[in-house]
Design a protein around this nucleic acid. Structure first.
Lengths: 127, 127
DNA sequence: CAGAATCCTTAAAGATACTG
DNA sequence: CAGTATCTTTAAGGATTCTG
């Protein structure tokens, strides 16, 4: 088609790819979605864990750390015994929830058509 | 929030997760996007390869095979020498391009804010 | 040109046990 | 409750070589 038009989007580091890279790890988008859609933006670790059936404690904490380092969530701790820790979407995190909800909404609206989607023979992500 | 509301979306096999799983492999969404946005839905293998800087021939063919098996693209071959093969978005593929373009559009519109996104220390996806 | 066949490296994810 | 520390598995992705 137009070989050289809008060259930025083919760069390795363009915005779309950064967003998609965020979606490429198993739990990232699900945690952000759950935090937003099920907990209104803030939740304690345990509550979040219970909202995410199938996730291991390790993957939960690890992903939360990565999200924190990316500036998408904030970790708030109440120095009590037993410890109480909550995670909240940062402003940037609230922004990143937008495309995630776009996907969720679109997918739910098209779930009928998506049933035709054959799962890949390879991959199947070691779940 | 509402613990038990809309229980489907927390299932392992819900539509949103199937879509996101498709995005989880490195080249899938980029190939579909390129096929659509740069080639109008159909392209020959070589042209596609040149439109995707950084992809290896192996990953291109492998991902194309998976997309074909998922019913998202169709492989058309002209039995000539040298061989000519083209790949085209199927109706289902054209549907799946929708959420991909949603992401691309959203990301381009918010590329400024996305510059704040810190890359994760781990991961960095072996590219 | 389009692709198959190997080999290899690493990271993503899970299991399990332990700590304050 | 919230989190760390290992250990292991496996598959995703890449490099290279070969073929019709």
């Amino acid at each position: 088609m137009q070989p050289g038009s809008d060259e930025e989007q083919w760069r390795e580091d363009c915005a779309p790819r950064r967003v998609l890279e965020l979606f490429s790890t198993k739990w990232t988008s699900m945690i952000l979605h759950t935090l937003h859609a099920r907990h209104g933006g803030t939740a304690r670790s345990g509550a979040l864990h219970r909202s995410l059936p199938g996730i291991s404690k390790k993957m939960l904490i690890q992903t939360l750390r990565e999200l924190e380092q990316s500036g998408l969530i904030e970790r708030h701790t109440l120095d009590s015994v037993p410890p109480a820790v909550s995670y909240a979407l940062s402003p940037l995190g609230q922004l990143m929830v937008e495309p995630i909800e776009l996907i969720y909404d679109w997918a739910r609206q098209n779930s009928g058509a998506l049933d035709q989607l054959q799962p890949r023979s390879t991959s199947r992500r070691r779940g």
